Simulated assay, not measured.
Amino acid sequence: MKKGLVVISGCSGGGKSTLLTELKGRGHAVVEEPGRRIISEELASGGSALPWLDLAAFLRRAIDMALADWAAAADRDGWVFFDRGLVDAASALEALTGDPVMRSLCATHRYYPRMFMAPPWPEIYASDAERKHGFDAAVTEYDRLIHAFPALGYEVIPLPKTPTMQRADFVLTSLDGAIGKDR
C-alpha cells in the first residue's frame, strides 16, 4: 500500500538515528542521513567535502545524495522514513551562500506533508568523530529547520522527549491517524 516518504529532522544529537533504527526494526524502510554517509566516504577517500573543511561542497553533495535517495524511494510501498533529507541540505546551503536552491528543489521533490522534528535535547546530545560541532550549533541548526519546513508547507510534528520505543509508537500513531486527511 502506498503511504509516503516521511522526514525525521531536527536538532543534531536529538535521537533521530536511534528512532530510525527502531522503525527499521519494526519492518519499515529507512534512509540513512546523507551527512553521515558523506563524511564516512570523504574520510575514507581523503576528500575535502567535509562540514569542517568545505561546508558548501559538503552541502552540495548532501543535496545530490538526498535527491538520489528521494528518487530511489519514491515508488516504494509503505512508509519510508528519512533521517534528514533534501530540505535540511538545501536550507543549509541557502543560509550559507544565499543561493536560493531551497524553494525550487523542494517544490518538485516533496515528502509526505507531515514531518517530525527532534527538538534540542541536551541530556542525550553527544559529539563524536562525525559530529564535531557543539550543542549551540545544533540548536542554531534546529532553529533554521523549524522555520524551513513550514515555509515549504509541511506540518511539523514535534517529537516527544521519551524513550525510543515510545517515540516510534508516537510517529506511527500520528501517521496512521493522518491517512486520508493529508491526501
Rank of each mutant, 00 (worst) to 15 (best):
R131N: 13
D64V: 08
I157Y: 03
T140K: 14
R36D: 09
G85T: 03
H133E: 15
Y154A: 14
A118E: 01
F149K: 00
D88I: 07
Y125C: 00
V171A: 02
G35W: 06
G4Q: 05
L53Y: 09
F58D: 04
A44W: 07
L55A: 09
G35A: 15
L20K: 00
I38S: 09
A74F: 03
I124N: 05
D143P: 08
I39F: 01
A151R: 14
L152Q: 10
S174W: 02
H28R: 03
E32F: 04
D75Q: 12
V30H: 02
E33G: 12
L152M: 14
V7R: 06
V80M: 04
G46D: 05
L172S: 06
A148L: 08
P51C: 07
L43T: 09
V101G: 12
L172H: 13
M117Y: 06
E130G: 01
Y154I: 09
V171K: 01
Y125S: 06
C11E: 03
K2G: 01
A90Y: 01
R26G: 10
G134F: 08
P163E: 11
Q166V: 03
C106S: 11
K2F: 01
F58T: 04
D128W: 09
G35M: 05
F116W: 07
P113E: 03
I157A: 00
S9E: 06
A137D: 14
R84G: 04
K16C: 13
L96R: 11
E22I: 00
V31Y: 05
G180Q: 07
A72I: 10
V87R: 05
G10D: 08
G4E: 10
F58M: 06
L50Y: 02
G27A: 11
A126W: 08
W70Q: 03
S174N: 00
A92L: 13
E123A: 15
A74Q: 13
T108P: 01
T164N: 04
A62L: 04
P113N: 07
W121S: 03
G85D: 09
V31D: 00
L59W: 07
G134T: 06
I39C: 08
G13K: 09
P120D: 10
E141R: 11
Y111T: 01
V80A: 06
M1E: 13
A178T: 04
D69N: 15
L67Q: 14
A90F: 01
S12P: 11
S48R: 13
F170C: 09
A90S: 15
D176V: 03
P120V: 03
D169A: 06
P119R: 08
K161A: 10
M102K: 13
I39T: 11
V7P: 09
G25F: 04
E33T: 12
T173N: 12
P51Y: 12
A89E: 02
R103I: 08
L59V: 13
H147D: 14
A107Q: 14
R103N: 13
P163K: 03
T164E: 02
V139T: 09
D64H: 13
T97R: 13
A72N: 12
G27N: 05
I63P: 10
G10T: 03
G15R: 04
S91A: 15
C106K: 12
I38R: 07
R131A: 13
F149N: 06
H28D: 06
D75G: 15
L145S: 05
R26T: 11
H109G: 12
S127E: 15
E94K: 07
A74T: 08
M65A: 14
